[in-house]
Design a protein around this nucleic acid. Structure first.
Lengths: 218, 218
DNA sequence: TGCGGTTCTAGTGTATGCAAGAAGTGGGAA
DNA sequence: TTCCCACTTCTTGCATACACTAGAACCGCA
């Protein structure tokens, strides 16, 4: 996990490390990012740290206020809701396009992923299911045959990783999630893009509901 | 146009200026961005220039290759097509949501904009129509009542400004554009979100066709 | 004791210097 | 003549130093 990768630019390594800490929640929203301190932690000067922070702010993971430093984006509840809706709409858009455009190889890959997931649900292997889920959605992105859309969808998904990571922990959620994937897949195989989009919207809606319920005790 | 704005951060001013030059085409795609040279041009050192370039790369206006400098994003034809499709889908998504969520005030503002545009088309005032067009679409973004979606849509529109700016110059395009707005508006007023989305897709498709035709002589 | 202004300080914004890597250049060998 | 390799130069990546500003702490005054 913590490989050296000395070939990468120092600023890039810092950016990746920080992004990771933010999305995993190690760096809580609202935390101030002290350039000097971070630099010390990575054995680097402030310059590469600044560049990393600039990048993160562009992705929306941190917020910068001139001369007042950067803080980890403390997204409001409303904003999280907004982001979830956007995410659901984008996913729906992707699956609609993908339904019309995926070739047989891509379709079968999607079906295979769904097939494989049955064992994971049965075994209760949430991590494996999570990885499969990621692949499942990514396969759909690529199925749009539109590199730009795929990038954007993936980017948004990354940004939401911080909120999504716990959503599968809810009781029985993996089984329900798999069932929803099943319906989705059926619509895709039938070539009904609009229906697939509807399935995806409700799939994402259910996922967000599960998350909401899980984090209700904050 | 070239106001001082000394209150802004130097790096911000450079970023804005460069973004402007890129989107207006002054800096052609593929141009290399020499940090020293740009710094001299703005009377600044390389540091703020670097920060500006980092920001631009995050927005996608320039591409950075480690130790090889940054060049203005020479987007391939395929990528432009991909971006147009994404743009069309996002706009369609927005108008569908907006149809269900806009309040009477927002609806009437949209109608008013459409009303006003008649005179612009008649007078052949393309710049005024362009501004109205911008407002028209932005009103729809805001009509989604989802700040995140509105931001993203606006951001994408900004990124595409470089390609869009000439599209209205095609013969008779403003009149056709206005007619399409009319149909769109009717669907919105009727409360038919799906139909509004379809109208928007075809509107965007026509706009891209017009652009393609216009730039065919390259 | 409360309030306004002043000073202090921590931390960002910018400049500059140095080192390392990548493209271009020239010469030598096949 | 062409290909390969060392060398040069140019540009970026990083470190360090200085400047400036926003808050905090402080102090004097009412």
């Amino acid at each position: 996990m913590s490989e050296e990768a000395p070939n990468l630019l120092l600023s890039e390594r810092i950016r990746i490390a920080l992004a990771d800490e933010i999305t995993t929640g190690q760096l809580a929203p609202g935390s101030a990012l002290d350039e000097q301190q971070i630099g010390d932690r990575f054995g680097a000067s402030r310059t590469p740290v600044r560049e990393a922070i600039r990048q993160l702010s562009a992705v929306g993971l941190v917020e910068m206020r001139p001369r007042r430093g950067a803080v980890v984006s403390g997204v409001s509840t409303q904003r999280i809701i907004d982001m979830f809706e956007m995410s659901a709409e984008i996913e729906a858009m992707c699956v609609r396009l993908a339904t019309y455009r995926m070739n047989p190889v891509e379709r079968s890959r999607l079906a295979q992923l769904h097939e494989d997931s049955e064992a994971m649900v049965a075994a209760g292997d949430i991590d494996a299911y999570d990885r499969m889920n990621w692949d499942f959605h990514q396969t759909i992105y690529e199925g749009t045959h539109n590199a730009f859309i795929a990038e954007q969808a993936l980017g948004l998904r990354d940004r939401m990783a911080a909120f999504r990571r716990t959503q599968l922990r809810g009781g029985g959620r993996p089984a329900k999630s798999r069932a929803e994937h099943g319906e989705l897949l059926a619509a895709i195989m039938r070539g009904d893009g609009e229906e697939a989009a509807r399935c995806m919207r409700s799939h994402m809606f259910n996922a967000s509901l599960a998350l909401e319920r899980f984090t209700a005790g904050r």
